[in-house]
Amino acid sequence: MNEPVPDDDLVRLAAGGDRDAFGTLVERHGSNIYRLCLRIMGNPEDAHDAAQDTFLVAMRKLDQFRGEAAFGTWLHRIGVNACYDALRRKKRRPILRSVDPDDGPQADLGPAEDDRADEIVGTMGVAQALAEIAEDYRVAVVLADVQDMAYDDIAKILDVPVGTVKSRVHRGRIALAKVLGIEPGARGPRRDGEPIGGAGTSEGQS
């Protein structure tokens, strides 16, 4: 019976100080933004910080949202910038960690060969490979293939021409394939759970 309140209306309310409205926006977009940050940053801790930064910056800039793009697209732009900022601060490659918080400080998994935790089997291979490719390519393929965003929207998020986006996505896929050990015409797609490089592993038959 109750229609969901449109994002634009929630933004106006939140800009006026309505915390419930802001909370609803975070509920709606939190999983998308966290997934974006996780795939760019490469580990849950940095993704968590970047996602929180995203919503903090968004809150501060709510009154600048003009509705020219969808709120989710606007939020992605802030999220990508938060990740770029975090990556600049780190100045090192992402460290992959177990998603199980009970693992504590021993959760660093090190190289991908140490692919051991049950809860991350299925993502470690591709996640590790993503961390290996250039940031601009990584961001482009995450937006296109993980977040399923249209090229026009990605161009707005990255503030580059659409043609540049398409080139980055293509180059990013090629770079990722190389890290994943995908050979043209050699076999089917390398699937999650297979260590990078493919040596000594069973063939992906999906």
């Binding site: 996780l38 299925g122 291979g125 591709v126 393929v141 293939d145 896929r173 394939a177 995908i182 043209p184």
Partner: peptide
Amino acid sequence: VASEARAALRSMPEVEV
């Protein structure tokens, strides 16, 4: 190879938020 890379990316499971 780009098609296979895309398939690998899209096979990543949902994450716990």
